[in-house]
Design a binder for these strands. Structure first.
Lengths: 248, 248
DNA sequence: AGCAGTAACGTAACGATGTTAACTAACCAC
DNA sequence: GTGGTTAGTTAACATCGTTACGTTACTGCT
C-alpha cells in the first residue's frame, strides 16, 4: 500500500514547486506584484491548479511566510548561547532587524499587513506550535531571563509588556525603513546607527542603573563602533545564509 | 472677468466632493477596499470623471492624506506650549500614537506603505513646505530643544538620529498594533501601557542620569498611572476633535 | 449672432486581477 | 471492467485601474 504515500509525495512535490515559484517572485515583486497567473506560468501549470493546493492567494503566501517565521525562530534559538542576558537581547534585536532589512517583502507581508483571518481557531495549530509564536516566546523568555538576573529596574515586573515594547522598538526601525527609507525629505541616518541607537535607548531605559550595568557604553560612540555593528552583521550573515539580500 | 474664478471654484468644489467621498470610504474600507467606481458612484459621477481632477488613484489618496499630515503638524504645533522640553517630547509621542490609533487606515497608507513615486522633484514642493516634513521637523526641533537644555547624555549630539529613533519607537507601537493587534497568540497589553512604556524607556535612555532628571518616575507604575494616561487621552481628544474614532 | 476652442464629464472598452464552475483524464480499489 | 477519487485544465465571471474617444456646455472673439 505504498501507492498512497507516493501520491501524497507527488502532491507535496508540486505544492513545493508552487511555493518555490511563488517565493522567487515574491522576493522581488512583493505580495501585490505577484499574481496567481504569473506563479502558474512559472511552473507551467494552469492558474487554477494552484487552488488544488491552496485555498486562495493569501493562504499561499501565509504558508510561504510560515517557513520564514520558523527560520527566524531557529536563528533566535541559535543566538541563545550568548552568556550575558543583556547581550542576548541585543543580539535578538540585531538579528530581527537584519531579517527585516534582508527580506523587506517578507517582512512587509508578515508584520506590516493586517491578516484579518488570522484566528487560531483549532487547537491543532496551537499544538504543533505557531512559528510566529515561537519567535515571540523566545523573546519573552530572554526578557524573563534578564529580569530574573536582576538586570532591570525593580518596578518593571511584567515581562509581557516589556517584550511587546522591545518588539515594537525594532519593528519600528525596520518598518519605517521599508515604508519611508526612500523618502528624500528625511536626512536618514544609516539603518545600522538607528538600530544601535534604538537598542541602546530601550535597554538603557530598562536597566536598574547605568553604573552597575554590564552593558558597555553606547556602541554608536565608542571608538570601536564599527566593530560592534560589523560583528552583528557577520553573525546575521552566518545565521541567515540563504536569505536573499535585496538592499545594497 | 470673474467667470474664470467661478469656473475654478466649481472645479475645486467637485474636487472636494471627490475627496470627501473618498475619505468617507477610505476610513472604513482602506486603500485597497476603495475603488474608483465606488467613489464615483457615491457622488453620482462617472468613474472616469475622477481622472479629470486626479492623475490616478494613488494621487487621490495622497492628496487625502496630505490634509491629515497638515492636521498632524498643526496639532504638534499646538502642543509646543508645554513648558518642559521633555514633557513636550512625551506629548508629541502620545499625540502621534493617538493619531495612528484613531486613523488606522490613514496611518497605514501614510506610514506603513511604500510610495515609490514619492520624489520631491520640483523645488516648488520644497518651497511651500511638505506637511509630512513639517511634522518631522517639529519633532527634530523639540529634540534639539531638549538637547540644548542639557537634558540628554553628553555623547548624544546628533538630533537627527535621535529624532529618527524616537519616531521609529512610537511608529513601532502603532504599526504593530494595526498589523498584529488582532492576533490572538500574543497576550497584548493595553496599547496605552505599551505607549507609556515605550516613551518611558526611550526618554530614560536619552537622559543624562536618572536622578537629576526632571522626568517623573515611570507613569506605568506610579499609583496615578491611570491619570497620566487619561490626561494624554483628554489632550488628544481636545486636539484631534473631528478625527473619526474607529476603534472601540 | 455665429464661430471656434476649451474643458468637464460620459461611454465603451482594454488588459489584468482573484476566483469559481464544469469538465477531463488518469489512477486505484474492488 | 467499473466506479470513485482527484490533480489538473478550460472557460468564464466580477471587478479592478485606466485610456481613447465622443459629447456637451460654456466662453471669448470677431
Amino acid at each position: 500500500m505504498g501507492v498512497k504515500e507516493r501520491r501524497e509525495r507527488e502532491k507535496s512535490e508540486t505544492r513545493d514547486k508552487i511555493l518555490d515559484a511563488a517565493r522567487e517572485l515574491f522576493v522581488t515583486e512583493g505580495y501585490e506584484g505577484v499574481s496567481m497567473r504569473k506563479v502558474a506560468e512559472k511552473i507551467e501549470y494552469s492558474p487554477t491548479a494552484i487552488y488544488v493546493h491552496f485555498a486562495d492567494k493569501n493562504e499561499l503566501f501565509r504558508e510561504l511566510c510560515h517557513q520564514d517565521y520558523a527560520r527566524l525562530a531557529e536563528v533566535f534559538q541559535s543566538s541563545a548561547m550568548s552568556a550575558n542576558a543583556l547581550e542576548r537581547l541585543t543580539q535578538i534585536g540585531r538579528i530581527y532587524v537584519e531579517f527585516g532589512i534582508r527580506n523587506p517583502n517578507h517582512y512587509k507581508f508578515m508584520f506590516m499587513t493586517p491578516h484579518p483571518g488570522h484566528r487560531l481557531d483549532d487547537i491543532d495549530s496551537e499544538m504543533h506550535g505557531n512559528p510566529e509564536m515561537d519567535a515571540y516566546a523566545f523573546l519573552k523568555w530572554a526578557v524573563q531571563q534578564a529580569m530574573d538576573a536582576g538586570c532591570f529596574r525593580e518596578e518593571l515586573r511584567d515581562a509581557e509588556v516589556i517584550s511587546q515594547t522591545l518588539w515594537a522598538s525594532v519593528h519600528g526601525v525596520i518598518s519605517l525603513e521599508i515604508a519611508k527609507g526612500c523618502d528624500e525629505w528625511v536626512d536618514w541616518r544609516p539603518i545600522k546607527d538607528r538600530t544601535e541607537m534604538m537598542l541602546d535607548l530601550t535597554l538603557r531605559g530598562l536597566l536598574k542603573s547605568p553604573s552597575d550595568s554590564t552593558r558597555e557604553k553606547s556602541p554608536l560612540l565608542a571608538k570601536d563602533a564599527g566593530n560592534g555593528a560589523a560583528g552583528a552583521d557577520d553573525t546575521a550573515k552566518i545565521l541567515l545564509p540563504d536569505l536573499p539580500l535585496e538592499e545594497k
